[in-house]
């Protein structure tokens, strides 16, 4: 099938994006430090720098899924960026291997203020099943202040979505208004 026909079919079909999950779902927990962070005017847009600090790569798979057309993180104004200097959020996965600790700290230091840290997945929260090993710090908290934790092994994409929406609400002071209609059709 030609590209033009495939594209046309997609256009006619409409988006395959699932409706947005409610903020606060998926067991996300907000750190104590966050309430006081003077609500920055981010214009409802968040830029994320992701760092794998020794994950098993399962969490990365689900982050990818969250950025894809089905969960479409981008519709909320949330995008991943390459440079930490452009980022508002540091999204960390993995139990923080000692071999990655310095790179993680440097990435954090390179980010401008205000900035927030999200620990994604059981590993990033407390080391998960790698806790207690000599080669890991056992969670992001051992190195950086954590503002939001999203549990799961790995957390499914909508847990990431609702966690980030919670954060977006808190830092910009208002409920998230998605750009696309909330009743996107289910993918077949």
């Amino acid at each position: 099938m030609s590209l033009a026909r495939l594209l046309l079919r997609e256009l006619i079909k409409g988006p395959r994006t699932l409706p947005a999950p409610p903020p606060g779902g998926g067991g996300a927990e907000v750190g104590a430090g966050l309430a006081g962070t003077g609500r920055a005017r981010l214009g409802r847009s968040l830029r994320i720098r992701e760092v794998d600090a020794g994950s098993c790569n399962g969490c990365e798979l689900e982050i990818h899924a969250a950025t894809g057309p089905v969960y479409d993180l981008g519709r909320f104004g949330i995008e991943f960026v390459a440079s930490p200097r452009h980022a508002d959020i540091l999204l960390v996965t993995g139990p923080v291997s000692r071999n990655m600790a310095q790179a993680l700290k440097r990435t954090y230091d390179a980010m401008p203020h205000p900035k927030w840290v999200v620990a994604l997945g059981d590993c990033a929260i407390d080391g998960g099943c790698f806790a207690g090993g000599d080669a890991v710090l056992g969670g992001v908290r051992a190195l950086l202040p954590v503002d939001l934790t999203i549990p799961g092994c790995p957390p499914p994409p909508e847990a990431l979505l609702s966690g980030l929406l919670t954060l977006l609400d808190l830092v910009s002071g208002g409920p998230a208004a998605p750009l696309l209609p909330m009743d996107g059709e289910e993918p077949e």
Partner: peptide, 11 residues
């Protein structure tokens, strides 16, 4: 490589 070493075998 080696950055993601978690000591799986030792664990």
């Amino acid at each position: 490589l080696g950055y993601t070493h978690k000591g799986v075998e030792a664990l």
